[in-house]
Design a protein around this nucleic acid. Structure first.
Length: 160
DNA sequence: GCCAACGTTGGC
DNA sequence: GCCAACGTTGGC
């Protein structure tokens, strides 16, 4: 019996928001379009069924973790890569030799309060979190301790 | 809108 | 295989 792992997935809400995920059938969607090797490796090799996911909104004021989701399908080829009219086509990726991978996630719920990037930067225990160390990565590992701290933060009303 | 950080590409 | 040029991300 494997313990679940924790992740943080980024999305620009102008393109795809947590609200969009909640509005999907069964609150579930393919996490497609990742075209970065480090993120791909996580999706292909390490993100497992039942793992928990923070949904982070980037490129918005303020950038913040807004909700949680759960992995409902493990890594499989991102077929949007070999669809020439998809948003992120990659002719080098084929059915026989896929390069890019995705997982499916199902929205759980909004956090009681969003946890902003500023809060994350100011919170003891989160100073080494991957989000702060590798700013441009779109899929980050989160430790169990970090997950617990962020969940606790989300239950606290912000004064500013 | 700016621009720093950083991942990717491609010439050599 | 190095590394300069280039493109993208994303906070500010």
């Amino acid at each position: 019996m494997r313990e679940c792992s924790y992740w943080l997935f980024k999305s620009e809400p102008s393109g795809y928001s947590f609200h969009d995920l909640l509005n999907e059938d069964n609150h579930t969607a393919e996490w497609d379009g990742v075209r970065n090797y480090a993120a791909r490796n996580y999706l292909r090799d390490q993100v497992k069924l039942g793992d928990k996911v923070f949904f982070y909104h980037s490129n918005i004021k303020p950038p913040a973790i807004v909700g949680t989701a759960v992995v409902v399908r493990e890594g499989y080829p991102d077929f949007t890569a070999w669809d020439p009219i998809s948003e992120h086509p990659d002719p080098k990726s084929t059915l026989a030799t896929p390069i890019w991978f995705m997982v499916d996630i199902r929205a759980d719920d909004f956090l009681p309060n969003e946890v902003t990037l500023t809060q994350i930067k100011l919170t003891v225990g989160l100073e080494n979190t991957s989000l702060l160390k590798r700013a441009r990565l779109s899929v980050h590992p989160v430790t169990r301790e970090e997950w617990t701290i962020i969940i606790a933060l989300s239950k606290r009303k912000q004064s500013c």
